[in-house]
Computed example of a mutant assay.
Amino acid sequence: MPLFTSAPNSLCFLRLSAIGDVCHAVAAVQAVQRHWPETKITWIIGKVEAQLLDGLEGIEFIIFDKKAGYAGMKTVWQQLNGRHFDALIHMQLALRASVLTLGIKAKYKVGFNKQRAKEAQWLFTNKKIDDVTSEHVLDSFLSFVEYLGVPKQSPQWNMPITSSEIDWVNQNIPTEQKVLVISPAASKDERNWLTDRYAQLADHAIEQGFQVVLCGSPSEREIQLGENIRQLMTHTATNLIGQTSLKQLLAVLNRADVVLAPDSGPAHMATTQGTPVIGLYAHSNPKRTGPYLSLESTVSVYEECLSEQYGKPSTELPWGARVKGSDLMQKITLESVIEKFQSLTQMQKD
């Protein structure tokens, strides 16, 4: 039996971070909105992630600043003082997020089941979703809203992009050519592909008639990575690393014909725009964290690395098993990525 057989009055979603997982959560929240348009939805979210979702219709955002620690929690609790939700949907496994739920009043607090919950999340919830079989994180998020009573459906996204962001893209990528966006940086440097291979792939795409655009955050390491790629290239790419807001980056990914990225937020942002992604994976399972609509076009050495490290395939290891090592990404050859790029762009022509 679903938790609700008719539309609840109010739901509170808790998913603070990261960018990719917040994109997954949007699909779940918007599924609720389509099924129960009258239900009031509140979303407790991280400060950076809120910038990406600004303008999302019909959602009240409560921003939690994790850098503020306990004071940040008290700020959230004060904003929700006197409020009582029909259900709190607790989609974050971190202990800090679970502590945050203590000050949120809800009849039901719905979390992962014990098999998938980490950091004792199950102690903070009174309802657990049944799902233990979904491979992809997005499917497990959709299981939350199915548990509430929303029929199972394919994910859809409606992410607002304003005319000013579109104008910005048109000014910075003023071309009629097809566009390959390379977002080269993962959250850790060891998960980046090799710099010279990014450069060679970029040159190959330009020789195929593409405009290549580099994107990323304003962090020093990402800016340096972009410069290193440009210096190794024979041709010229447009380098927008450090020059976009999250909203402008979303608009750039919308403009792209193809995106190349390691396991990172922009791969999932591109997915919300229906843009094909060539995902590069070694450390984590692309079937779990890959770009949801582009799993066929990922280039993965994950199973190979897993076998070397554990002597077992992913089917015999815990959900979310990761591979450790600083040189795993070099197993992804330039030829394998060129081959994927060629087959994807050929499909677009056909």
Rank of each mutant, 00 (worst) to 15 (best):
A7N: 00
I19K: 07
G20S: 07
D21H: 11
A25D: 08
H35I: 13
Q51R: 15
L52Y: 11
D54S: 15
E60A: 15
F64M: 03
T75K: 05
Q79I: 03
R83V: 06
H84I: 08
H84C: 08
M91K: 05
M91I: 04
L95D: 05
I104N: 09
G111V: 02
F112Y: 10
N113I: 08
A120N: 12
L123Y: 04
I129Q: 10
V132C: 09
S134Y: 02
S140G: 15
G149M: 15
K152I: 05
P155D: 06
M159T: 06
Q171T: 06
V179S: 11
Q200L: 04
D203I: 04
I206K: 11
E207P: 00
F210Y: 13
Q211G: 06
E222S: 01
E222L: 05
R230D: 04
L240A: 02
T244N: 14
T244M: 11
S245W: 12
V252G: 13
A256S: 14
D257N: 14
A267C: 11
H268Q: 14
L293E: 01
L295F: 14
S300E: 04
E304W: 02
L306M: 06
E308V: 02
G311Y: 13
E316K: 14
V323P: 09
Q330G: 12
I332S: 14
I338M: 03
E339K: 15
Q342P: 11
Q346N: 04
